Amino acid sequence: MTDTAPETITAAARTATRRATLIGFSAVALWSLLALFTVGSAPVPPLLLNALTFGIGGLLGLVWVALSGNLRELRDVSWKVYAFGTAGLFGYHFLYFSALRMAPPAEAGLIAYLWPLLIVLFSGFLPGEHLGRLHIIGALMAFAGAAMIVVSNANTGSTGPSGSALPGYGLAFLCALTWSAYSLGSRRLGRVPTAAVAVYCLATAALSAAAHLALEPSLWPVGPMGWAAVIALGLGPVGLAFYTWDIGVKRGDIQLLGTASYAAPLLSTLALIAAGAARANTVIVAAAVLIAAGAALAAKASRR
């Protein structure tokens, strides 16, 4: 019995890790709908859209926390943790939208989407983690697939980056650093309850509202479909996704999650195709092969 007990514990731990990783995958699936719902929410400006959607996501979290009877857990969380989470959510989105205003969106978006690669690479320095050759190869292959999708949507009439776009590219790189740091930092805060994400969202909504009043005109959703898109964003990609991502990065295989995150631009493109907003082409097929192969290599490395 003493010989099998450690094996039983190890098997249970592996099962829990796989379950948490699958939960984290749901965030990637939800983020794939971000572009589609954002298109439907026009003409709402970015910071106002942040305020509305994060407000919905935060209220959704509070309802979940209240129904689960874990409101008391929020009192035990340090203000430093709340500041960290709020800075991650608000900082990433503020930098992202600013970058897309100051630089060509396709190129800036590609630079900002370096965060999954940074998660995979930097996670090797976390306690108990190991970065192998297959992790690196898989991450680079998946990144190549994501790059193909973003570059294929670039304006073919552009003549290349100008010096005036460099600040925007710098902000886009800060986006990648911010989200990878938030995800890896959440891993280190494994004992902080996921319920704290509700506070992150509400604080982000408040900061976004203040920034909106200072920087943007107030343009509201048009008609029932516009409001439906905003609500869908708040419930899914800018709501539930942050809670499931928190579970995944804290308890799951963070290297596999980082690599699998490259599926988001592919799935987002497929969603746009299904809605008639984009056309299928050979680039998508090639990107799908690279992303799937990269994720498979990372999964193989994690199983080892």
Rank of each mutant, 00 (worst) to 15 (best):
S268P: 00
N153F: 12
F173T: 03
S98A: 12
Y200W: 15
A83S: 15
W245S: 08
E73V: 10
S26M: 10
H135C: 09
L121F: 12
F97V: 04
L166P: 06
L74Y: 08
G248R: 08
I231V: 13
R19A: 15
Y113E: 02
S123F: 04
A299M: 13
M141W: 00
T4A: 15
L290G: 00
P43E: 03
C175I: 06
N155M: 10
R304P: 09
A144K: 01
L297T: 01
A278H: 07
G276M: 08
L118C: 01
S123W: 00
S152L: 00
G24Q: 04
L36P: 01
M225D: 15
G24F: 07
N70P: 10
V39P: 02
A298P: 03
N155C: 07
P6H: 11
A29T: 11
S261D: 01
G157W: 04
T159L: 12
G128D: 09
L121C: 09
L117E: 04
L131M: 08
A241K: 04
F90L: 07
A106Q: 12
L48D: 04
L270K: 00
Y243A: 01
G236R: 09
T156H: 10
S208M: 10
L121Y: 08
T259L: 13
P265F: 05
A298I: 08
T269F: 03
A99T: 02
I137L: 15
A241W: 04
R14A: 10
F242G: 05
L49S: 06
T21I: 02
A165G: 11
D253Q: 10
